[in-house]
Design a protein around this nucleic acid. Structure first.
Length: 407
DNA sequence: AAATCGGGGCC
DNA sequence: GGCCCAGATTT
């Protein structure tokens, strides 16, 4: 036995005659946070500082910083008169120090251009360093109770879902739609609480992943929810089709003209194959000899650099910059039939072994000098084979790479 | 390892 | 005005 529930009896969240802001504010009345330090005595100055701090840090982290900052700099004038260094010392630990610097700069600007009064026109607020459209909207609405929209990351997510707006929010057209919607939904009444509420909703229930739609006051009006697409919206940033990774690829030649090969870790790129030593490109070329010494235990001398070549993987492009090094023969000694852990051993003329005092890099499973005849027999990745095997590689500086004959 | 974020800066 | 970055956290 069911009976029709009248609109009058329905919760605002389910009642289609309630607007977006009414539903949101009703939720905020029950669940919103109203006792954070910057929610008392809401002046433009206090809200401004809190908004800048909150741009980069979570509420719980911000609170103690905010309180210390406010004790030392209770108003714009004290902030403007302090040195940048002192302001930064109160910012230390929050990160993004450019924003701390902007804070000070803006305070000075307010003293000079606005007679020490924080501006109350949206465009003036937005003209201050470190304050863009969204932060200006937050200050104007929360502190000055002016009807002004905001569009921070949380609000973008709420609105993209609510209206099922397609496309990455970083695209201008999408951002324009969101700003327009943000503006349309912003109420004339209780705009301060509304701004707080929509940010809170995005920060809590309407989270990036697995939003808690069951508790959400907008559920009945949310387009993404109706379509079951709350996990797909907002559309993620299109991942750059071909991330490029660059690395040095080292041809380390010993006195016999052999090259150093390493057996790569079993997983990952070229898993388990022999290849030339590869070094991340964030080391500069001058650091390579030290790197070779510490990682491989070899004294290498730079000889030449070859033209970089590319290899396309399914998910990224690898650009390898070949460098030719020459090294002394590693110190060798006869050790009978035993080898020691971490030290490469290999047979020489069948009867005894020598240790070569070069090391195996972390993660790699073996490391050997091979002559051309030898490396032709082992499993090399095709691009490496191509690099070594043909004389066709365009070589800078006139020195051929690893194209020495057997020795 | 990659996505994210709001504003700045550069052309 | 459009594009990309700096600088840090989150996932």
């Amino acid at each position: 036995m069911t009976r029709q529930i009248s609109l009058f009896e329905m919760m605002p969240s389910d009642n289609p005659s309630f607007s977006f802001s009414e539903k949101l504010l009703h939720w905020f009345d029950q669940f919103g946070r109203k006792n954070l330090p910057w929610q008392h005595n809401k002046t433009a100055y206090r809200v401004w500082i809190s908004e800048i701090m909150l741009q980069q840090t979570q509420v719980t982290t911000v609170i103690p910083y905010y309180e210390r900052f406010m004790q030392r700099f209770p108003d714009i004038e004290s902030l403007a008169q302090a040195s940048v260094d002192e302001v930064l010392s109160y910012w230390a630990g929050l990160g993004y120090y450019a924003r701390g610097r902007n804070l000070h700069k803006a305070a000075v600007t307010v003293m000079e251009n606005f007679a020490g009064e924080f501006p109350d026109k949206l465009e003036d607020i937005q003209s201050l360093p470190g304050i863009g459209q969204s932060t200006a909207g937050a200050i104007a609405s929360i502190a000055l109770k002016q009807r002004a929209p905001i569009l921070d990351g949380n609000v973008k997510r709420v609105l993209a879902r609510f209206a099922a707006i397609e496309g990455w929010t970083g695209e201008k057209s999408v951002s324009n739609q969101l700003w327009k919607l943000a503006d349309e939904l912003t109420p004339h009444q209780r705009v301060d609480e509304y701004t707080q509420a929509i940010m809170d909703l995005g920060a809590s229930l309407c989270s990036r992943r697995n939003p808690d739609c069951g508790q959400c006051p907008m559920q009945s009006a949310c387009k993404a929810f109706a379509q079951g697409r709350q996990n797909e919206l907002p559309t993620p940033k299109p991942k750059s089709k071909n991330p490029v990774k660059e690395a040095w690829i080292l041809a380390i030649r010993d006195a016999h003209g052999r090259l150093l090969f390493q057996k790569r870790p079993p997983t990952g790129i070229w898993g388990g194959l022999w290849s030339l030593p590869q070094v991340e490109r964030d080391l500069n070329i001058a650091q390579l000899p030290d790197y070779i010494a510490s990682q491989l235990g070899l004294q290498g001398q730079y000889k030449a650099e070859a033209t970089p070549f590319e290899h396309q993987f399914s998910h990224f492009k690898l650009v390898l910059h070949p460098i030719l090094f020459e090294c002394e023969n590693p110190v060798s000694e006869a050790v009978g039939e035993y080898s020691l852990e971490g030290i490469v051993s290999h047979e020489v003329q069948g009867s005894y072994k020598i240790q070569e005092a070069h090391k195996i890099q972390e993660g790699f499973t073996d490391s050997q000098f091979y002559s051309r005849a030898q490396w032709r027999e082992i499993g090399l990745p095709a691009p490496i084979k191509k690099l070594l095997g043909s004389g066709s590689l365009p070589i800078k500086e006139q020195i051929e790479l690893g194209i020495t004959e057997d020795s």
